[in-house]
C-alpha cells in the first residue's frame, strides 16, 4: 500500500516536471517564432558604405625594402609596370592564380607584372604551386607587413591594378573575378576589351607549360607513378577527363579506334590517361579485348590544371583533351579530342 502511494506521488511529481518542460518548450518556440530576439542575438546588417582604404587615383605605397621569407621586393619590382597586386589571407583563389599566370604569360612583354601576397602557405596553395610553375611571385607575409601597406587589415581579399606611375587604376577589397581582370588588362595594355568569351582563357594548361606531376597508375603493371616518370618527349597524351560517375572506356570506343588507326599513331608515343572516374577493371578488360597498344594509365588525383571548357557541359566525345608534347617535354598543343582527330584526319588526307 505504502509503495503504491509512493509510486503515485512520484508519478505525479515527475508528470508535473514533464508537463512544465513541455510547456516551456512550447512557450519558447512561440516566443522565438513571433517576437524579436534579444538585441545581442541579432546579426548586424552589413554596412552599406564600402571602405576601400586605397582607391582609384591614389598612389600605391612603395614596396621597397620589404623582405618576406627571404625574397626582397624592391622599388624597381613594379617600376614602370602594370602591377596586378592581389592579397588573399589564407584561402588561395586557385582559379584566379592560374588565370593570372595565363594573362602574365600573354601580356608580360607589354609590361604586366602580377604579385600575389598571402599570409601563409596552405596545403592547397602548396599543392597548386607544386603542380604549376607560376610565372609571378606569390609572397608569404606572416607578419602582415605587406597586407597593411594598402590597409587590408579587415579583409580576406584585396586587389589593386596599378599603372606604370604607381597610381591605382582599380581597387577592390574582395575577390576579383578572372573575367574582370582580363577586361582590365585588355583595356589598359591592349587598348581594346574582347567581349567574346574565349575558350582559351578558360583553359588551365597552355603551350609551353610542363605537365604537372600527376599521380597515375600503370594499368598494365599496376605500378604507381607520376607523369614525370614517363618519357613524354614528342608524345601525344590524351586525357580522358570525364566527370561521369561510371565512366567506361567503351564510351570512347569510336575515338579510340580512330586514334589507333590514325596515320600519326606509328610515329608518336601515345599515352591514354583516364580520370579517377574510370574503373580500373574496366580499363584492363577493354584494353585487352580491343588490343589497345598505347600506354594506358588511370589518374589518382584530379586533373585540376587541365580544367577546360571541354570537360563541362560538353558531349561525352568532347570530354577528352589531347596534349601534344614537344621534344623538350613541354606542351606543344592543347585541343579537345574531336578537334584533334579532325585536324590529323585532314592533315593525313592532304
Amino acid at each position: 500500500m505504502g509503495s503504491l502511494r509512493w509510486a503515485k506521488q512520484r508519478f505525479l511529481f515527475y508528470g508535473l516536471v514533464a508537463g512544465i518542460l513541455t510547456a516551456d518548450a512550447w512557450v519558447l518556440q512561440y516566443l522565438l517564432h513571433h517576437y524579436d530576439l534579444p538585441a545581442s542575438f541579432q546579426t548586424e546588417p552589413p554596412p552599406e558604405e564600402e571602405h576601400v582604404h586605397l582607391n582609384y587615383g591614389e598612389l600605391f605605397p612603395p614596396l621597397s625594402d620589404i623582405s618576406v621569407t627571404g625574397k626582397t621586393i624592391d622599388a624597381e619590382f613594379l617600376h614602370g609596370k602594370w602591377g596586378v597586386i592581389f592579397y588573399f589571407k589564407d584561402r588561395p583563389m586557385v582559379d584566379f592564380l592560374s588565370y593570372c599566370d595565363t594573362l602574365n604569360r600573354k601580356y608580360h612583354s607589354l609590361g604586366l607584372q602580377p604579385l600575389g601576397i598571402t599570409r601563409r602557405e596552405t596545403k592547397e596553395l602548396k599543392q597548386f604551386l607544386n603542380r604549376r610553375a607560376i610565372s609571378y611571385p606569390i609572397l608569404l607575409d606572416p607578419g602582415d607587413r605587406l597586407r597593411d601597406l594598402p590597409h587590408l587589415e579587415h579583409h580576406r581579399y584585396g586587389f589593386f591594378f596599378i599603372n606604370p606611375d604607381g597610381m591605382i587604376e582599380f581597387s577592390l577589397h574582395r575577390l576579383m573575378t578572372s573575367n574582370d581582370l582580363r577586361q582590365l588588362v585588355e583595356k589598359y595594355l591592349v587598348g581594346q576589351i574582347n567581349y567574346d568569351i574565349e575558350k582559351e582563357w578558360r583553359l588551365g594548361i597552355q603551350p609551353g607549360d610542363t605537365l604537372p606531376p600527376y599521380k597515375i597508375i600503370d594499368v598494365k603493371t599496376g605500378a604507381a607513378l607520376t607523369i614525370h616518370d614517363l618519357d613524354v618527349t614528342n608524345s601525344v597524351m590524351i586525357f580522358f577527363t570525364a566527370s561521369c560517375s561510371t565512366c567506361q572506356m567503351s564510351n570512347y570506343w569510336e575515338e579510340l579506334k580512330a586514334i589507333e588507326t590514325s596515320s600519326v599513331r606509328p610515329r608518336n608515343r601515345f599515352y591514354y590517361i583516364f580520370s579517377q572516374n574510370f574503373a580500373f577493371s574496366d580499363l584492363i578488360d577493354r584494353m585487352n579485348a580491343h588490343h589497345i597498344t598505347a600506354n594506358v594509365y588511370i589518374a589518382e588525383e584530379e586533373f585540376d590544371v587541365l580544367e577546360s571548357p571541354y570537360v563541362t557541359k560538353a558531349p561525352l566525345s568532347e570530354e577528352a583533351l589531347v596534349l601534344t608534347i614537344d621534344i623538350r617535354g613541354r606542351v606543344k598543343t592543347v585541343e579537345p579530342l574531336a578537334q584533334w582527330l579532325a585536324r590529323i584526319s585532314k592533315e593525313s588526307a592532304q
Partner: peptide, 10 residues
C-alpha cells in the same frame, strides 16, 4: 525507472 519513463514521455 520512473524517472526515465517520465523523461521519455516529456
Amino acid at each position: 525507472r520512473w524517472l526515465w519513463a517520465v523523461i521519455g514521455i516529456a
